[in-house]
Design a protein around this nucleic acid. Structure first.
Lengths: 194, 194
DNA sequence: CACATTTGTTAATCTAGTTGAACATACTTT
DNA sequence: AAAGTATGTTCAACTAGATTAACAAATGTG
């Protein structure tokens, strides 16, 4: 079934009784997006927390000059959303767009609230997910400030080899905070060095 | 009592019965650090989640060349820690050092675990805190990538006017990811413009 | 008080990374 | 097959911001 990966993901962190699994399933909906479609649009209020079952997405925003800045990617077993928008019900800062045909499991804000109340471990699950996400986000701030682009690229390649394969280079450049030309230069250097 | 600010902070998010308040108090310890002392040291395992009762701290790390990079500040009613280290029990990436005489309320990892189990709302409290912290951290990554230093400084000034007053400029420059000379140049420009 | 340390400014030089344009390659779509 | 669109490279001119160093001003300390 479609939700297998979600359930086995969740049970890595908390145990779910049969009844709780049923409650979970009632509160989540699967949806498939085609390549290019938007799961979240900058300016709209974000309605879902999304768990990627299959496919690949990019999260980005457009600055005042219309330039695109990639914030993150998401592949199988990752969460993606504009959490700030979801919890505050303010317009989203980000877009989440599918780079491939992508299937996600979607939780509305209300579904999450109910799950927090009805499934005891659920609050813990998200506390743990958020702890990790926050710690990773903090590390990324460090990285951007203290490490030159070349090393940032190497680190990215090490950490997310699947993503490097799946995603075009100019998007990776944007994620790293550099121009595609400069990434190309870095890659040329690395080939020469190896 | 010293913990008044902590308790009124917490009750902004969840309700605490008298008994729960007692349990909370049992699991937290106040400690005062003098100016210059370290609450967390890079390389040590971080033992506490800290709530600032009074004073001011900076969180920073030293890169391979020994240069200091400020990640955040914390003043009254803020949390500060190296969360990654606290939860993984791996050596901390950051230092948390007091810029003034600072009083904090400290929770050990074990105390937090017990509180999650014994005080029903506690898991929710931290889920909410982490949601906000994560969303803010994500916004900061955007900001660094898409906005020039001058605007980043203006935004910082708007958002944290108390901190701008309390903390020396060269630390703010480091927080913004620029050199102190460049911040000085920006400030000179702003005075001229106003 | 004088002296040292911390904090802030100004100016010259240097560099990592940007921008833009031209060209190459591949993948779609008609 | 032709033509368009998405992706990737290279080069030259440019700029945001770093680095170094010298000097003020402010603050702390014996």
């Amino acid at each position: 079934m479609e939700l297998t990966s979600l359930i086995s993901y969740i049970t890595r962190f908390i145990t779910l009784s049969e009844k709780e699994t049923d409650i979970l399933i009632e509160h989540v909906k699967c949806r498939t997006y085609q390549k290019g479609q938007y799961i979240v649009q900058q300016g709209d209020v974000c309605r879902y927390e999304n768990f990627v079952i299959s496919g690949c997405t990019k999260t980005f925003f457009l600055d005042e000059d219309g330039r695109e800045h990639v914030v993150m990617f998401a592949i199988e077993n990752w969460w993606t959303s504009d959490l700030g928008s979801l919890i505050s019900k303010q317009p989203a800062d980000y877009n989440v767009q599918c780079l491939e045909k992508t299937m996600v499991a979607q939780f509305t804000y209300e579904a999450l609230e109910r799950l927090y109340d009805e499934v005891p471990g659920f609050e813990r699950l998200f506390r743990i997910i958020l702890q990790k996400a926050f710690a990773a986000s903090q590390k990324r701030i460090i990285l951007n400030h203290s490490v030159p682009a070349k090393e940032r690229y190497l680190k990215f390649r090490m950490q997310y080899p699947e993503i490097e394969q799946r995603v075009p280079q100019y998007l990776i450049a944007s994620y790293l905070g550099i121009s595609k030309q400069f990434l190309s230069k870095i890659r040329a250097q690395l080939v020469y060095e190896e």
